[in-house]
């Protein structure tokens, strides 16, 4: 049986992992919603965040500066990615854009390999992250607590932005009906740049949290984050922002649950088991657990 203390710990772990996945899924979904494209170079934004943190650490920056610098780099990289790689292909087919994003991912990984190193490098994080705090009789890790807190705050702020601001309303309109949004005056280029900027912001925040867990970076660091983002947003119904958040938390909870309950021999395959369960869910509900069917965009 699980003790209340253990349960509380696992709950925080699930919320912490879930909020990273939610941020990642939102970042991917945001661009999909507006442009109808899956940006598989999204994972490389996490890698760029990580290398920026490493670079700043090597120059003696304290962790908060590393974190802010990493997020900033991801935002800039995301905006540039759209301007350089995707804008010239505006209006191209889904498949063309998909393969272009693979190419961008591949290219960036090669640049990391050539310019930095193909080997993993440690990213220093505060030792405080390894500590645990005691709440009553329950001990909870500092990092999972910070992660869940940062994740929740980012989600709340983003929700407010999407609901309250004029730009947020314009983005929601554009993801419902891009042509009509332009007809009422929404500037196409601006709303697309904004979607990529927010996507980069989310990748950056999730990246800082992710690297704080893994404490290392290598050229392929972005692979697992993009995979989890993809799975979570498909569970939530692609392009559905609320679904992406729900899908992220669902995936986080599922992985933590499997980690805690699977027998030791299968434990290394927890992620694969999670993927299997997700595939089974999608077989029954292709539109995702939370989504209505989303029509393909032009």
């Amino acid at each position: 049986m699980v003790s209340p203390s253990e349960f509380a710990q696992q709950l925080v772990n699930a919320l912490s992992l879930g909020s990273i996945y939610a941020l990642l899924a939102l970042g991917l979904s945001m661009v999909y919603g507006v442009l109808g494209m899956l940006n598989f170079a999204f994972g490389e934004l996490v890698t760029i965040t990580a290398y920026t943190m490493l670079f700043l650490a090597n120059h003696g920056a304290p962790f908060p500066v590393m974190a802010i610098g990493g997020v900033f780099a991801a935002v800039i990289a995301s905006i540039l990615m759209e301007l350089v790689a995707f804008r010239p292909l505006r209006g191209a087919s889904f498949v063309t854009l998909l393969f272009t994003s693979f190419a961008v991912a591949e290219l960036l990984q090669n640049v990391f390999r050539q310019a930095i190193s193909s080997r993993p490098k440690g990213v220093p994080v505060p030792s405080l992250f390894d500590n645990a705090v005691r709440v009553g009789s329950v001990r909870i890790g500092v990092l999972p607590l910070i992660t869940a807190g940062v994740g929740a705050t980012a989600l709340v702020l983003l929700t407010l932005f999407m609901r309250r601001s004029r730009s947020g309303i314009a983005m929601r309109a554009a993801s419902q009906d891009f042509a009509t949004a332009r007809l009422v005056g929404v500037r196409a280029n601006r709303v697309i740049s904004l979607a990529f900027a927010i996507s980069g912001l989310l990748a950056g925040i999730a990246g800082v949290l992710w690297i704080s867990r893994t404490t290392a970076v290598q050229p392929t660091t972005g692979f697992v984050p993009i995979l989890e983002a993809f799975i979570a947003s498909v569970i939530g119904g692609l392009g559905n922002l609320r679904g992406a958040v729900a899908g992220g938390f669902f995936l986080g909870a599922l992985e933590v649950f499997l980690q805690a309950t699977l027998p030791g021999k299968i434990l290394p395959f927890a992620q694969a088991v999670a993927l299997l369960i997700v595939v089974a869910i999608l077989y029954v509900r292709p539109q995702g657990l939370f989504g209505r069917r989303v029509e393909a965009k032009v």
Binding site: I169, R172, Q176, D177, G185, V186
Partner: peptide, 19 residues
């Protein structure tokens, strides 16, 4: 008509003034 179905009535009107 093509109103934005997922936006509220008021948001649709705010969007009309986006320019």
């Amino acid at each position: 008509r093509l109103v934005f179905p997922g936006l509220t009535v008021e948001e649709n009107l705010q969007l009309g003034a986006i320019s």
